[in-house]
Amino acid sequence: MNGVDAVGVLYGLEAINAHNGWAISVVGVTIVFTGLVSLSVLISQLHKLVTLYNNPGRIKKLFALKSKSAAKAGTPKKHLVLTEAQKQICRQYNLLAQTMDDVISLPKLLRMAELSGLKEPHANINFLVKSGILCADEQGYFRWDEDRFIRAVS
């Protein structure tokens, strides 16, 4: 396998060693992986930045919420796995929430759900609160967690 021919061309492992082949390959693979891994990490967070950009008010709330994370102990943080029916409920209430201000009044949302003829509005609003899609702020109002909603329904 290894060797040198008549005109001095190296072959086999000897050629790889002589031309620093192993190091070049390892460095090459590492750089490609580093590039794509960092890009994938970055773009996995991109939608969160976009959501913040779309709702500037949330940046302020984000810091406020962090300091009061204990108050939100009831808000589960793990990834939601919803049934199709639950996803449908989320989408319906998202449409309602979009007609409201950035801050949502829960009694108003409940009333709108009842007026819209949505089924089991009480249980479903409770589900949205439990799932963390509707988050309580410190003022007695709620906000629609777009990021959590998108992840839940996608």
Binding site: G12, V32, L36, S40
Partner: peptide
Amino acid sequence: PVLMLLGAAAQAGIFITFLGALAL
């Protein structure tokens, strides 16, 4: 984005062939 890693993994073929070409 996690699927991006598959695109990275497939590029390993480039560097393995690079070694093969050196060996030839």
